[in-house]
Computed example of a mutant assay.
Amino acid sequence: MAIDRAHHHRLRSALGLFVLAPLIGEFLLGNQPVTALPSVFLLAPLYGGGALLVREAARRAGRGWPTMILLGAAYGLFEEGPVDQMLWNPHYGGFDLAAAYAGPRVPVLDTSVQLLQDVLTLHTVWSICVPIALVEAFARGGDRTRPWLGLPGLSVTALVFVGGSGFLALAQVESEDFVAAPGQFAAAGCVIAVLVAVAFLIRPTGGRGAAPLPRPWVVGASAFAATSAYWGREHLPDGVPAAVPVLGWAVLLAAVLVPCVRWSRSAGWGGAHRTALAGGALLTYVWVGFEQSRYLEVSRATQLLGSALFATGALVLQAVAVHRSGRREGSDPPLV
């Protein structure tokens, strides 16, 4: 009976991640109105299937967050490359992306450097890592680092992910009337393959030490400040050279990674810190969602209602996750 309960809990965790990923990645962000909530079932195979495959692949291989971060980056390139083709479509979604991202370009992928930075940031952080961290906060005992699916469940998830991705890719071609060049698809595929290979080749080195570690709320506040600063570049005045936000992104990335690597090597790093780190990023999407929803083609009242509803859900989820993770400490390998 205990084994059955544990199995059911793992399945609930997998299902929770499957649904939570698109809710954060699209609805909390403000990309979809509350009236489109049923479409979560169309988005879940891509977002939820991707997050679940990233998590299960890393955990089955005995790996931790470095692997999931790199796999999350590969997922981001996959979604906005072969699936949506936003990396190359200059008029994606009816917006003039060619003008919005007129700065330096990445030669191999043939896309804007700043657009690539946005794709990697949004999907690695919010589509993949934040949902995984929050759902793992509810895991029982060793289930946080244990696979939640057996081979049959993993196979079904992979099929759902591939099928959902293919469906959305065809829908995008139909709606956007755009198909990238074969070389662009090939380049994206090569970069994705490299990211996946590196994700499983890297191994954390060194043990844990007694480095000073801030309290969880400080970690969460730092994550909120850093991710809010990232979105702050949306408010840069006109005329700022394109190189400024590009270099600013690199500086901000270093400012985040350096302390996170140091903190993760501390013997005191645990579940409360991980949940706070994810929660800080989650709360950034709460305020960003209110701004982004202004561009939705629904009434302002519907925009505000939807943002308020998803924000409330995010706040409740984070509060419960903090409570649960504080009672279930556990360590991941250091980031390096």
Rank of each mutant, 00 (worst) to 15 (best):
residue 80 E to V: 02
residue 60 R to W: 11
residue 88 W to D: 05
residue 81 G to S: 09
residue 43 L to R: 15
residue 72 G to K: 06
residue 95 F to G: 06
residue 101 Y to W: 07
residue 71 L to C: 02
residue 42 L to Q: 13
residue 40 V to G: 08
residue 92 Y to H: 09
residue 82 P to S: 12
residue 96 D to W: 00
residue 38 P to F: 12
residue 33 P to G: 10
residue 54 V to I: 13
residue 70 L to F: 11
residue 98 A to Q: 14
residue 44 A to F: 10
residue 83 V to D: 03
residue 83 V to P: 00
residue 30 G to M: 05
residue 79 E to T: 08
residue 29 L to W: 14
residue 91 H to K: 11
residue 29 L to K: 09
residue 42 L to C: 09
residue 39 S to L: 15
residue 82 P to F: 07
residue 35 T to W: 10
residue 61 A to Y: 14
residue 95 F to S: 14
residue 94 G to I: 07
residue 53 L to R: 00
residue 84 D to K: 03
residue 47 Y to F: 15
residue 85 Q to W: 01
residue 67 T to F: 09
residue 66 P to V: 12
residue 61 A to I: 09
residue 100 A to Y: 03
residue 55 R to N: 12
residue 43 L to N: 08
residue 96 D to S: 04
residue 46 L to M: 14
residue 81 G to R: 00
residue 72 G to F: 01
residue 98 A to L: 04
residue 48 G to H: 09
residue 60 R to M: 12
residue 56 E to Q: 08
residue 55 R to L: 11
residue 59 R to L: 15
residue 33 P to W: 04
residue 78 F to D: 06
residue 50 G to V: 06
residue 38 P to I: 05
residue 60 R to L: 09
residue 40 V to L: 14
residue 100 A to S: 14
residue 56 E to P: 06
residue 85 Q to E: 14
residue 81 G to W: 03
residue 95 F to T: 14
residue 86 M to P: 00
residue 74 A to H: 03
residue 90 P to I: 03
residue 28 L to A: 07
residue 27 F to H: 09
residue 69 I to G: 02
residue 70 L to Y: 08
residue 97 L to T: 05
residue 74 A to R: 03
residue 54 V to S: 01
residue 47 Y to V: 04
residue 60 R to Y: 15
residue 30 G to K: 05
residue 82 P to R: 10
residue 90 P to M: 03
residue 43 L to I: 11
residue 100 A to R: 04
residue 74 A to Q: 07
residue 79 E to M: 11
residue 36 A to L: 13
residue 89 N to C: 09
residue 86 M to V: 14
residue 61 A to Q: 13
residue 37 L to H: 11
residue 79 E to W: 05
residue 44 A to D: 01
residue 33 P to S: 11
residue 46 L to I: 13
residue 91 H to R: 15
residue 56 E to N: 05
residue 50 G to S: 10
residue 95 F to M: 14
residue 89 N to K: 04
residue 84 D to W: 03
residue 90 P to Q: 05
residue 96 D to V: 03
residue 39 S to K: 15
residue 70 L to I: 10
residue 80 E to Q: 07
residue 42 L to V: 13
residue 86 M to T: 08
residue 58 A to Q: 07
residue 64 G to L: 06
residue 87 L to Y: 01
residue 91 H to L: 10
residue 70 L to S: 09
residue 57 A to L: 12
residue 47 Y to N: 05
residue 35 T to A: 15
residue 60 R to C: 13
residue 29 L to H: 11
residue 39 S to R: 15
residue 50 G to D: 01
residue 52 L to F: 08
residue 98 A to H: 10
residue 77 L to E: 11
residue 69 I to S: 07
residue 57 A to T: 13
residue 75 Y to W: 13
residue 60 R to F: 12
residue 51 A to Q: 06
residue 46 L to K: 08
residue 48 G to A: 10
residue 48 G to C: 10
residue 46 L to Y: 06
residue 57 A to Q: 07
residue 101 Y to K: 00
residue 33 P to A: 05
residue 72 G to P: 05
residue 62 G to R: 04
residue 54 V to F: 04
